[in-house]
Simulated assay, not measured.
Amino acid sequence: MGNLRELAFKLDNETGEIKGHTDTLIDVEILLGQLNDKMFEVEMKGEERSYYREHHRTIRILWHIMRQLKTELIGSVEEFDKINTDLFNKVVKNKTHEQ
């Protein structure tokens, strides 16, 4: 896959991607918690029908974000795993052959 320098840069890039996805997951969790609180409040007032469209739109948007994020995260983790394996093979297995 390349020399150690290239692998280190690729690993750093994928680590940044995964961290970005994690930040987005945290944001989605916060939004879902706020939506849950708002839906509970509306339910207690008996105003579910009045807020249905708003809540449905929010859920639909969050679902699309989660679906896209899942796809990107899976891709990043797969690439991270490939780089990690190549790095391990270059550093650990080559060192074993040298000794």
Rank of each mutant, 00 (worst) to 15 (best):
K38G: 01
K38W: 04
M39G: 04
F40M: 12
E41I: 05
V42W: 05
E43G: 15
E43L: 12
K45W: 11
K45P: 06
K45L: 14
K45M: 09
G46W: 15
E47I: 04
E48H: 02
E48S: 11
R49W: 02
R49T: 13
R49K: 11
R49M: 05
S50W: 10
S50E: 13
Y51R: 10
Y52G: 04
Y52M: 06
H56V: 03
H56I: 07
R57K: 15
T58D: 15
T58V: 13
I59P: 09
I59C: 12
I59L: 06
R60H: 08
R60E: 04
R60C: 03
I61L: 09
I61V: 08
I61W: 10
I61H: 11
L62K: 04
W63N: 15
W63G: 02
I65L: 06
M66D: 12
M66W: 02
R67Q: 01
Q68S: 10
L69P: 03
L69W: 02
K70S: 05
T71N: 10
T71C: 06
E72H: 04
E72Q: 04
E72K: 04
L73G: 00
L73E: 09
L73W: 06
G75F: 01
G75R: 05
G75C: 04
S76Q: 12
V77A: 03
